[in-house]
């Protein structure tokens, strides 16, 4: 489904701040894989997301989805295959527009945007059904401006907008990190449910070790621009947070340094 072939990315080339963010990343996701990604500060997790979604283009290597090379395509063209939820709950929705208008824009993912009504009667019905899956009552507030919603509600809407058109790849970039624990738990539950129901191939960055172990069928660990550990489902099931941290220290030679890391 998703394939990264020897992908490398350098920041600020030729300056004193030069920093290699990704080195020779090789990663292959099978259809239906739900992979969690952990790693210390500056490990390259967000860069990995950006290189896949097209916010950045790799300096070397190639990104393929379903056999098509997409490395040279700009972000807005890649969105045909890639759905994404950002860490910042404000980032994934347009605040001055209504809930149904936001969904209408997501509905046209990867399709031409012409002069059809953004919100037709048929589309509104679909949006209402989709919103019901969130269980937040947003289906009764279709005409409310998104800026009036709470951070948790906005993130739930972002998650729905990123996923309901069934993209080939769903990227979740620490999408629960900016929320309080109760709302983070709600979004995590919704994520699990949506990914399962729609059988989405998913890559989720998280700083929550316990979450990384509990969710998904595969776990990868990154450090200094490399993937240092790739744990398959069979081993992941009875992994503990302590073991995971131990593995990290053993392979990387240093402690997991992340000021936001949550152990579980």
């Amino acid at each position: 489904m998703l394939e990264l072939n020897a992908v490398s990315k350098l920041f600020n080339p030729g300056t004193p701040d030069e920093k290699i963010a990704l080195i020779d990343i090789r990663l292959k996701l099978n259809p239906g894989d739900f992979v969690t990604v952990i790693g210390s500060n500056g490990a390259g997790k967000s860069t990995l997301m950006n290189v896949i979604s097209g916010v950045m283009k790799p300096d070397l290597g190639e990104v393929r989805i379903d056999g098509t090379s997409i490395s040279r395509l700009p972000e807005f063209k890649r969105s045909r295959w890639v759905g994404r939820v950002f860490q910042d709950p404000m980032a994934g929705t347009a605040p001055t527009m209504t809930i149904e208008e936001n969904l209408a824009m997501a509905y046209r993912r990867g399709k031409p945007r012409g002069l059809s009504w953004g919100v037709s009667a048929a589309r509104r019905k679909l949006f209402r059904e989709q919103l019901q899956r969130l269980g937040l009552g947003l289906e009764h507030r279709l005409k409310a401006k998104v800026g009036m919603l709470s951070g948790g509600e906005r993130q739930a809407l972002s998650l729905l907008m990123a996923s309901f058109t069934k993209p080939d790849i769903l990227l979740l970039d620490e999408h629960t990190a900016a929320l309080d624990p109760a709302r983070a738990e709600l979004i995590t539950k919704l994520t699990e449910q949506i990914v399962r129901d729609m059988k989405l191939t998913t890559l989720m960055v998280t700083h929550n070790m316990e979450q990384a172990i509990r969710l998904g069928n595969r776990l990868i660990m990154m450090d200094k621009g490399r993937i240092i550990l790739d744990i398959p489902e069979s081993r992941k099931q009875d992994l503990t947070v302590a073991q995971l941290l131990g593995e990290f220290e053993r392979i990387s030679g240093h402690k997991m340094a992340d000021d936001r890391v949550v152990l579980g």
Binding site: S79, F86, M97, G114, G118
Partner: peptide, 28 residues
């Protein structure tokens, strides 16, 4: 009317949240 079409929504979102509409495939 134009501002309520798919094209018009994309235009409004460009002023509201560029990052978001790009991630949804709108050419800002």
């Amino acid at each position: 009317a134009f501002l309520h079409t798919d094209r018009g929504l994309s235009l409004r979102a460009t002023g509201d949240n560029k990052r978001m509409i790009r991630s949804l495939g709108g050419n800002t």
